[in-house]
């Protein structure tokens, strides 16, 4: 394993030092692992906080800024942050109108954010929570920890962020966030596993013509192993998995997301097939993102996330955003 790191132990701190140096409009505490807007919380605005394990960059720190998150707290690689970080991030986001915690549905994230919310409530901060659980590769049943939160997190953070920036109260921001999650589904495919800095080995081994279907974003193996196919067929596998769970029609917000080690040219090829197949079903790519947004270290592969847009959601999607990883309209 060759990685551009100083040591497995300092990966997160070192990356945050780089984030700080690259983005003067962010306040970054590399040791405390808090990233927030340099201008501080916006008085009277609902605050948005998210956090989770590192290794998914630009998620979440890359989405801190006008129109999106107020603060983020990155944990160790693939490890949920601890409650103290969440409490500090919440304080950095609190403009007095309450704070929404955007939590990806993993046991660790859920439990730590739960403990943090208790602590925040003790300090008198009003907290609401949205659980993101869009990954259709996992059955949402009592036999699982529930569907994973993956690509839809970007949609939730963007759209809820716009609602908060527009002055909506906490309950409404939380409602919008939940609506986005309810209308979003994802499916991921890996061509090669990722390698965590600590273990130094791929999290699973794939043969020259094998791929893994239904992977999450933590290097865990997926739903099943399959034979490699061309981009058109892989796009169909991912889109059909989404469509089976939530039939796609009308205006759709589509993200073709790279998992960290996939070049943009390949993502555009996948996106071409997704867009074609969608319109073949009578749906329409109304808005889109193609690139690395929710990654899994250096995993090779992609995920597709689709969100059924309403007019309101499209308007909030189009609203100005100014973060390291998403910028438009301002």
């Amino acid at each position: 394993m060759k990685k551009l790191i100083n040591s497995a132990e300092t990966v997160v701190t070192d990356a945050l030092r780089g984030l700080a140096a690259a983005h003067p409009d962010l306040r970054v505490d590399p040791g405390g692992r808090i990233v927030s807007r340099a201008c501080g919380p916006t008085p009277g605005k609902v605050g948005l906080v998210s956090g989770g394990g590192s290794g998914h960059e630009p998620l979440h720190a890359g989405f801190v800024g006008y129109g999106m998150l107020d603060a983020a707290c990155p944990g160790e690689i693939f490890t949920s942050p601890v409650p103290d970080q969440m409490v500090t991030a919440t304080a950095a986001a609190n403009g007095g109108a309450g704070v929404l915690h955007v939590v990806k549905n993993y046991t660790g994230d859920v439990l730590n954010f739960e403990l943090a919310a208790d602590l925040c409530a003790e300090e008198g901060v009003e907290i609401a929570r949205v659980l993101v659980d869009d990954d259709v590769a996992v059955r949402d049943s009592p036999d699982t920890a529930g569907r994973r939160g993956t690509g839809a997190t970007v949609f939730v953070e963007k759209i809820a962020g716009a609602a908060a920036e527009g002055g909506a109260p906490l309950a409404e921001v939380a409602r919008v966030a939940r609506e986005v999650n309810a209308r979003s589904r994802s499916f991921g495919i890996a061509l090669e596993a990722c390698t965590t800095p600590v273990s130094g080995r791929p999290t699973f081994e794939l043969g020259e013509t094998e791929i893994e279907l239904g992977v999450g974003i933590h290097g865990e193996p997926g739903r099943s192993r399959a034979a490699m196919r061309d981009a058109r067929e892989l796009a169909a596998v991912a889109l059909d998995a989404v469509n089976e769970d939530m039939p796609l029609s009308g205006d759709v917000l589509v993200m073709v997301n790279g998992l960290g080690g996939t070049p943009l040219i390949e993502l555009h090829i996948v996106f071409a097939e997704i867009a074609e197949r969608l319109s073949g079903r009578g749906a329409r790519v109304a808005r889109s993102l193609v690139g690395d947004y929710v990654t899994s270290l250096d995993m090779r592969g992609f995920s597709v996330t689709a969100c059924l847009l309403s007019e309101d959601l499209a308007r909030l999607w189009d609203a100005p955003v100014q973060t390291p990883a998403l910028r438009w309209g301002r």
């Binding site: 394990g53 944990g75 160790e76 490890t79 949920s80 942050p81 601890v82 409650p83 993993y106 046991t107 660790g108 439990l111 730590n112 739960e114 403990l115």
Partner: peptide, 8 residues
């Protein structure tokens, strides 16, 4: 200090 599921 731990985070993850096992920490809590």
């Amino acid at each position: 200090r731990v985070g993850g599921a096992s920490g809590p």
